[in-house]
Design a protein around this nucleic acid. Structure first.
Length: 290
DNA sequence: CTATGCACTAGTACAAGAGC
DNA sequence: GCTCTTGTACTAGTGCATAG
């Protein structure tokens, strides 16, 4: 896997973050962009070319488009495609290199009272490849939420979140270096569970569709998330439920139904066990901060 | 890495009741 | 009457040990 090396400080500057669902037939227009455009796909497949090199970005994969190059969607989407993007600016020139050449253990010289400029440091971001869905999604959603009500008071918070995003992406590169097969299997399980959020969880069916033994895939997921597939499935549903409780006025019964619980009594029980408070208490508490 | 067997835990459905 | 919580019993899924 290749990565992009950026000289820091200063850190890249965030321009904007966004999220959209592309429908079948949509295709990116041609352009030469003067800033970095990080595309992350959570569902479906996005087809993008950079200077004539075609990339098919599947669910759980990202592509970092570099400034000054020609970008175009060389094929239309063939299924509904869930995309997040982040535009950022970085004035220092970048260098592309294989991840295995990154000297992760190189010590950075400590600063002294006599230094007027910081020691040479670098940030590494993946060019194209898979990412850790859960962690990245959480940071991106936090950024989007904050963007909706961004004031000077929270400007620094947004920069901190962007820094967190860069950290997660770089951590992913170190994971990639390990070439962990179990990580790839776990990622497939996470993608599957997210895509089947509203459906009842059935380990056998999942194993059949992913072509892995159900016990093996569960082990891989547990290794990287600490959760069994069913727990992970509940966790995803609870995250969705939290959003609906905060940002909608739907009843618990409706919310339970939307996220796939036929028995809303059961939903409230799971919610309390996972989050620590009942759904109604959570909604009341959230309302105080809105 | 993958498969199997078994004990146990967690998921699920139904019912009842509390609070507004 | 509606919304939400809690009790209970049955079932399916999970964790763990073991082996190929």
């Amino acid at each position: 896997m290749d990565c992009v090396q950026l000289r820091i400080p200063p850190l890249p500057q965030l321009l904007t973050v966004g999220h959209s669902r592309w429908t079948v037939g949509m295709q990116h227009f041609e352009r030469i962009f003067q800033v970095y455009d990080l595309l992350m796909v959570f569902d479906g497949t996005l087809h993008m070319s950079e200077n004539g090199i075609p990339y098919s970005i599947n669910a759980g994969e990202l592509l970092l488009l570099e400034p000054g190059l020609s970008h175009v969607g060389h094929l239309p989407c063939t299924e509904t495609t869930d995309i997040y993007w982040v535009h950022f600016k970085h004035d220092a020139p970048c260098q592309k290199m294989p991840v295995k050449q990154v000297a992760w253990s190189t010590r950075i010289r400590e600063g002294t009272d006599y230094d007027l400029t910081p020691a040479e440091q670098f940030l590494y971001l993946p060019k194209y490849g898979s990412f850790e869905i859960e962690t990245l999604k959480k940071v991106l959603d936090d950024m989007l939420r904050l963007r909706q009500t961004l004031t000077m008071e929270y400007a620094v918070d947004m920069q901190v979140l962007f820094g967190r995003l860069l950290t997660v992406l770089q951590s992913g590169l170190r994971m990639e270096r390990k070439g962990s097969r179990s990580y790839l299997v776990a990622n497939k399980v996470m993608t599957y569970l997210r895509a089947h959020l509203a459906n009842p969880f059935h380990a056998g069916r999942m194993a059949e569709e992913l072509h892995f033994d159900e016990d093996y895939s569960a082990r891989c997921l547990r290794k990287h998330t600490g959760m069994s597939p069913m727990k992970y499935h509940h966790m995803l549903r609870m995250e969705e439920a939290k959003q609906l409780l905060i940002y909608s006025d739907r009843s618990l019964r409706e919310i339970a139904d939307i996220i796939g619980y036929t028995d809303y009594n059961y939903f409230t029980r799971i919610f309390k066990r996972t989050i620590g408070v009942t759904p109604s208490m959570f909604r009341q508490a959230s309302a105080q901060y809105m």
